[in-house]
């Protein structure tokens, strides 16, 4: 059984209009099924309004399903008594690095989660040291978060989640507000956590370049899962991706165009090196 299991998941919300029209019921996600194995790296793609953030919030029990069920490590997220258990097991990193750091000093922010879990003082310090080391931010422990770069802030946010010893980390567009360097920093950090620590990662994004290393990719559109498979398989379906409003990486697009004009190339080229290899 997978660590995260959603079956026939659906979520509705009511939208109220400013000009007193009748409130409208919107299905943010409908009939979503998916199963994530422990230790996997899953990427969820989709353009704005595809329901990918709503899905992410279900894993952390910030939202509970209107229909269907969501299990995290065997715990049903709809059961209110299990709420804190679910949130400890599935940590969440959000988009805006400024709005998720609570402490005025880096180490205090990392300690916030364990404090809430009621971990003993001495153990909190161990966890904080450990988590900061894992994201490479140990040297910044007594700095003010306001003084860090975007990528560093986001790594602190990841450390804050790691300190709670989660089974899985959900990252909801963690790089959307970062510059290319910060983006690389954060992604490397996430990959390392996945590979070295075996933490299950669910990365929500709309940058195609970020999903190249994922084990599996899920593409969402209008609240439904429309494509799933390995990055290679997904990226070979360039036209379909474009239909869902997603831009494929430049190399993949070039390879696809070349192939259409008659060059003999394999499907789903992901990196520049691969294309060079295939062409020469």
């Amino acid at each position: 059984m997978g660590i995260i299991r959603a079956s026939k998941l659906g979520f509705d919300y009511i939208k109220y209009h400013d000009d007193s029209e009748d409130p409208e019921k919107i299905n943010a996600i409908k009939g979503v099924d998916f199963d994530v194995e422990k230790g996997q790296f899953i990427a969820v793609l989709g353009h704005n309004g595809s329901g990918k953030s709503t899905l992410a919030k279900h894993i952390n029990a910030l939202l509970v399903p209107t229909r269907g069920t969501m299990y995290v490590d065997g715990v049903n997220t709809s059961e209110e008594e299990e709420l804190w258990k679910v949130r400890q097991k599935a940590g969440m990193v959000f988009q805006n690095p400024d709005n998720q750091i609570i402490g005025t000093v880096v180490e205090e922010d990392v300690g916030f989660g364990p404090e809430n879990l009621g971990v003993e003082t001495e153990d909190i310090w161990h966890r904080v040291d450990d988590a900061l080391a894992k994201v490479g931010m140990l040297g910044f422990r007594d700095r003010s978060p306001n003084r860090l770069s975007g990528g560093q802030k986001q790594r602190v946010a990841i450390a804050s989640v790691v300190a709670m010893h989660p089974e899985c980390i959900v990252l909801d567009e963690p790089t959307a507000m970062l510059d290319p360097n910060g983006r690389r920093e954060v992604l490397e950090c996430v990959r390392e956590l996945n590979q070295k620590e075996g933490i299950t990662v669910i990365l929500i994004t709309h940058y195609m370049e970020e999903v190249v290393f994922a084990d599996n990719v899920i593409v969402m559109d209008r609240g439904q899962i429309v494509m799933r498979g390995t990055p290679r398989a997904i990226f070979s379906r360039v036209d379909e991706l474009k239909h869902y409003g997603l831009a494929v990486p430049q190399v993949t697009e070039l390879a696809c165009e070349l192939k259409q004009s008659g060059v003999d190339l394999p499907d789903g080229i992901l990196t520049i090196d691969e294309l060079v290899e295939a062409l020469c």
Binding site: L62, W84, R87, G91, I102, F112, G113, N116, V161
Partner: peptide, 9 residues
């Protein structure tokens, strides 16, 4: 939301 996600209660 971030505080709730980190089990603040």
């Amino acid at each position: 939301m971030a505080m709730e996600a980190r089990c603040y209660h």
